[in-house]
Simulated scan of single mutants.
Amino acid sequence: MMTAKHDALKRNLTDTLSQPKSCNVVQPSCRPPTEGGTCFKCDPDWERHGNKCYRFLTEKLTWDQSRSRCEELGGHLVKIDSKDEQCFLDWTLIDKMDEAEDKFWIGLTDQVTEDEWLWVDGSKLDESLAFWNYGEPDNWREKNPDGEDCARMGEKGGAPDLKCWRDQDCNKPQKGVCEKTPSMGRVKFNCE
């Protein structure tokens, strides 16, 4: 009986590992070379991925309010710099969305000049790292004549092609994603 269970678990693990993955989102919180070394650490309520810490705001705020809230917390609305980062955020948001329209503000806007998308640090969007959903940005004006000048992201079931950005009226409350640089910590058995 135990052998049958073992064989079934082994088959399940083999099947799971053989399925293609679009990205790898597993990231250890700290993997120092030796005890007593240094590592990156994030403040409580922040999640680490790569060389950034992320905080997922659950309160629905306007884009400007979300930007201010991130700054109050010592960061800024997220600037997505790589496919790996987009993948991490896409998969992380699946568990943080309660419904399909439950999206998250990112730090991208064309409020200054229409169709010139800028990150919160003032840098231009690199089109090779743009993850707009099909037909987006569309600057839809039916509910607001000023259009949609702020970017949000998230797909309840995940976006298989990672294309889950949409433009939205900046005054429509959404959740938000903040980011900041991790601090350095000393290692004993875990990051402290």
Rank of each mutant, 00 (worst) to 15 (best):
D15K: 11
V120C: 13
T14R: 14
R186N: 09
E101I: 08
D169P: 07
T38D: 14
N171R: 08
D169E: 09
C39S: 10
V25T: 12
E99C: 01
N12F: 03
H76Y: 08
R31D: 09
G75Q: 15
D110G: 05
C150M: 04
D81M: 05
D138E: 13
W63V: 00
W132I: 01
C150L: 00
E72S: 00
L77C: 02
D90E: 14
C53P: 08
D115W: 15
N12C: 07
V187I: 11
N190T: 14
S68G: 15
S66R: 07
Q111F: 03
C23K: 14
P145Q: 07
E85F: 15
V177N: 10
K143R: 08
S123H: 06
E179M: 07
E99V: 02
H49W: 02
G107E: 01
L77I: 02
P145E: 10
I80R: 02
S66P: 14
A8E: 06
E99D: 14
D64N: 07
D126E: 14
G107R: 04
D110T: 01
M153D: 05
Q86S: 04
S66K: 00
H76F: 06
G158W: 15
L17G: 10
C39E: 01
E47L: 03
Q86C: 06
K10T: 04
L125R: 12
E142D: 08
E116I: 02
L129W: 04
W132Y: 15
K156N: 12
D121Y: 10
N51D: 11
D45A: 14
D115M: 11
C191K: 05
G147N: 11
Y54Q: 01
G154L: 08
E114L: 13
M184I: 12
R48E: 02
N24D: 13
V26D: 10
S68K: 11
T3M: 03
P160D: 13
N139I: 07
C39K: 03
K175Q: 15
K79S: 08
C23Y: 05
C150V: 12
R166D: 01
I80C: 07
I80H: 04
S183V: 04
E136Y: 07
W63R: 00
T14K: 13
Q174W: 03
K52L: 12
S18P: 00
Q111C: 03
N171F: 09
E142R: 08
V177Q: 09
P28G: 10
D146I: 09
D167F: 13
C70P: 03
D102V: 06
I106P: 03
S82N: 06
N51P: 06
N190L: 10
F56D: 13
G154R: 14
W132P: 00
K143G: 05
E127S: 01
R67H: 13
S128W: 00
H6G: 06
Q111G: 06
W132T: 00
M1T: 03
F104P: 00
